[in-house]
Design a protein around this nucleic acid. Structure first.
Lengths: 217, 217
DNA sequence: AGATGTGAATGAGTTCACAGCT
DNA sequence: AGCTGTGAACTCATTCACATCT
């Protein structure tokens, strides 16, 4: 059984994908599945599935495969999805708003418990079940709500200072939407969702690979 | 000078980051920069910067560093940011809307030229400069607007069919926001922005690494 | 018999360290 | 003297292939 710090971020990403796939199998009433079947159905690699899962305690039955339900439970537990994670959004512009609403529908292990903004015009406005508060009160809000994940959806120019504020307010993880490379606190986990990087990568391919593949050398 | 297909997606991501950093230096009026300085200022790796840049034709001056402006121009060209990329959004829910507005402000190499949805109630509504059209007319819209990048912002359940429709309509690249592993056409580049994966990874760390580091074995 | 779990082999990506140019 | 460009070393990740267990 792996030490948390030893799990690679890539393995972690795949765990989410496996879980999603398994949930779909449950809906279809499938009780057992082999790594080969999973790989085939969801465009994954069978060897990788086995290696990834083995890292979290063997759950397969040799000669048979995996029991869908227990495996799903187990993975949910590993990812901490068996309890709710309170979340605070910093910056209620387009992205912050969209994200808040996205989570309303995507009910589950994540719950928005607070949202703040620097713009006085936005303070007091309601979004779903919560009211937008002043960003300057971040520390006390985090303290009050026990928010453990901070969602950073502010402009690039103020990303670092807002990140720092989130961290010193006491959140344990940050999801950063700002197109900015942050100087991060090593005790707080950070993941970036950088739309510009994705778009520019697509622009590269679209521009450079005019036709399918310049075959040969 | 590397063949487009040979450039690793990770290198490509970094190219965006370099470009962003360089633009900031331009604003500050800095004309020359060494890989060490860049690394230090933007939390990057000097060796990696040199290796990445060298892949696209040597632009540095030994003993001196890189000329900020010409390098910026060069990288912009490599990524195809010196011309506009027409973009079509499929699915104008929260995410689609937020993305459309995000790009309005993020004026630059990307322009939303069309948006479609399946919901009749949304057809005809205006967002920025464009009017939401019927998803069933996708092919002719792509044809009319020459959209080259498709942004998939539909629910997971209909992601594959909408992806297929985008591809057969003729887009050359897809940015997928749907939390679904797509069966992809190899001649169309696809990038995923999967918020659930990011959140679940954060949940893992928050849940498993209760305190800084369980030191030792 | 059949599918897992896993060492060994391969491949990809990063860092090192220094020769070579300015 | 100093910083780039790059082979070589190293680390991380994936795939292979098979011994192991049910």
């Amino acid at each position: 059984m792996a030490n948390p710090g030893d799990v690679s971020p890539l393995t972690l990403n795949r765990l989410s994908v496996y879980l999603r796939s398994l949930r779909q199998l449950i809906e279809e009433g499938i009780q057992r599945v082999s790594s080969d079947e999973l790989a085939l159905r969801f465009h994954l690699s069978a060897a990788q599935i086995r290696k990834d899962l083995a890292q979290f305690g063997a759950f397969g039955i040799r000669g048979v495969g995996y029991e869908v339900e227990p495996l799903t439970e187990h993975l949910s537990g590993v990812l901490g999805l068996d309890h709710t994670h309170p979340l605070i959004i910093v910056g209620m512009g387009n992205l912050g708003n969209a994200f808040a609403r996205y989570l309303e529908f995507n009910h589950g292990a994540f719950e928005v418990v607070a949202a703040v903004d620097h713009d006085p015009a936005k303070i007091g406005r309601r979004v779903g079940n919560i009211t937008i508060e002043k960003a300057s009160r971040l520390a006390s809000i985090v303290n009050r709500t026990h928010a453990e994940i901070g969602v950073l959806a502010v402009p690039a120019g103020v990303a670092q200072e807002n990140y720092d504020a989130l961290v010193s307010a006491g959140v344990r993880a940050v999801l950063n939407f700002a197109p900015r490379r942050l100087a991060v606190d090593p005790s707080v986990v950070t993941r970036d969702v950088d739309l510009r990087i994705q778009l520019e990568a697509l622009a590269f391919y679209v521009t450079q690979l005019r036709r399918p593949e310049p075959s040969g050398s």
